[in-house]
Write a protein that binds this DNA or RNA. Structure first.
Length: 434
DNA sequence: TCTGGGGTCCTAGGACCC
DNA sequence: TCTGGGGTCCTAGGACCC
């Protein structure tokens, strides 16, 4: 927690629905519901007019229709949402270079990195109001709600307090006074299951949470969550605003209007999803080693099965083959409502290739390649060499083999890509372990 | 005929290694 | 013929977020 209110959280109000109302004037002032259109869909966003009827996010489309039959139900135009979101993020970056998007409609901004004369409450308040005005102009009339406080946690809590089209600044030193009367469910990370556990322990408010010993919370909720909540109950939150977040997995899934019973149909759908995952990976420069399938049965029980390859892939056919073999081990009697495929354990080498390399880096790589090879290799590695030295196959896919060259001085060493039929690549016997 | 899609993080057990 | 403990990797499931 900082001594100044310098973390800003911005939340675009009813974002998807607001974009629809902006682009289609006939929808303005009327209940608009994005999502929930399919047989098993749920509501992604309800406009404030629709919320009046008790419609909210994650509600089934069936129930939303029952509560608000005259609403406009739309399936969503994600290109428009992405475009408008990008405009907003640009506006935030004009204020501070340190912007952490959380989703299309939410972000943290670090005001300590902004070009402001100071971080007094009056100064950050004025900056927040200017920001809301700029967002309104740039998006063609969308409104945003802002919270400003001394940590991510407090800024996010603050932005919930004056929705829509409002702002709350928490003066430093007043955090606990604000938090203590609130329910524990305002804490991000306390969902229905955690709230129920806390309720059974007689804990409803943050003041009650604050009174519990740390050991007791860890016993109740586990190490990470117990310790985390103990800290948050004291308004302690040292998490920095981070502009870059690493992608950990890429997946595609689908829920079908009627349950699937034919295994060949399931295999076909998995294969298509696997191709889509592979295409997205190549487009974004990722490859990964762990392929996971997700299967939701008719009764909503959800199964995951995964398999880890010895080297990363971005190839849809490879992903599909593994997905099919993982499905083969599952009993899908009774029907399947959802199928999904994902890849995790992402390697970073293709990403690095996207940025290219500088002459200095190239020269450094040449130097490393001339150094004597390291004589240990990962178990089962495919050891190869070219005229420059020895390495081991780190990744393959799309007709390309990636080789990591290791030296004693600089593990992990440089990475080179070859076509997999490149005659310069010769396979070697792995050297004996020493 | 209640319960989306795309993610992140945590836990827990077993294998394996030192 | 008895057996500790730590670390890492892998797998499965669950909670949570927008």
């Amino acid at each position: 927690m900082r001594s100044t209110a310098s973390v800003l959280h911005l939340d675009l109000d009813a974002f998807f629905a607001a974009v629809e109302q902006r682009d289609k004037p006939s929808l303005r002032g009327k209940p608009v519901i994005v999502g929930g259109t399919g047989g098993r869909g749920v509501v992604a966003t309800a406009s404030y007019e629709a919320r009046t009827f008790g419609v909210g996010s994650a509600m089934s489309g069936r129930e939303a229709r029952a509560r608000c039959p005259h609403a406009a139900f739309l399936s969503g135009r994600f290109h428009a949402y992405r475009e408008t979101s990008a405009w907003v993020m640009e506006v935030l970056r004009e204020l501070s270079p340190l912007v952490e998007p959380l989703s299309l409609d939410e972000a943290f901004v670090d005001l300590a990195a902004a070009d402001l004369p100071d971080l007094e409450v009056s100064t950050v308040t004025a900056a927040g109001e200017r920001l809301r005005q700029r967002v309104h102009e740039v998006t063609g009339g969308l409104t945003a709600t802002v919270g400003i406080a001394s940590s991510k946690f407090l800024a996010k809590v603050a932005s919930e307090l004056d929705k829509p089209d409002g702002m709350t600044v928490v003066p430093p030193g007043t955090e606990l006074t604000l938090l203590r009367p609130m329910k524990v469910t305002v804490i991000p990370g306390v969902g229905p299951a955690t709230a129920e556990r806390l309720r059974r322990a007689g804990i409803h408010t943050i003041a009650e949470l604050e009174a519990v010993e740390e050991d007791e919370l860890v016993r109740l909720l586990g190490q990470a969550q117990g310790h985390g909540l103990w800290q948050l109950a004291r308004a302690r939150d040292p998490r920095p605003v981070l502009a870059e977040r690493e992608t950990k997995s890429i997946s595609v899934e689908g829920t079908y209007d009627t349950d699937l019973n034919d295994r060949r149909v399931m295999e076909g759908l998995l294969a298509r999803q696997a191709r889509d995952v592979g295409a997205r990976m190549r487009k974004n420069g990722f490859s990964g080693r762990t392929v996971t399938i997700k299967v939701r049965l008719h009764d909503f029980t959800t199964l995951n099965r995964s398999s880890t390859l010895s080297s990363p892939t971005d190839d849809g056919t490879t992903i599909a083959r593994i997905a099919r073999s993982l499905l083969a081990d599952l009993d899908t009697t009774g029907g399947v409502r959802l199928l999904g495929v994902g890849v995790s354990g992402l390697a970073d080498w293709v990403q690095e290739d996207l940025f290219g390399s500088t002459p200095e880096e190239d020269e450094a790589e040449e130097v490393r390649l001339l150094e004597p090879p390291r004589r240990t290799w990962p178990p089962g590695a495919d050891v190869v060499h070219d005229e420059m030295g020895q390495g081991w196959v780190w990744g393959s896919g799309s007709g390309v083999v990636t080789v990591r060259f290791e030296t004693a001085e600089t593990p992990p060493g440089p990475v080179r890509s070859f076509r997999d039929d490149d005659p310069a690549l010769r396979r070697l016997e792995p050297p004996a372990e020493d």
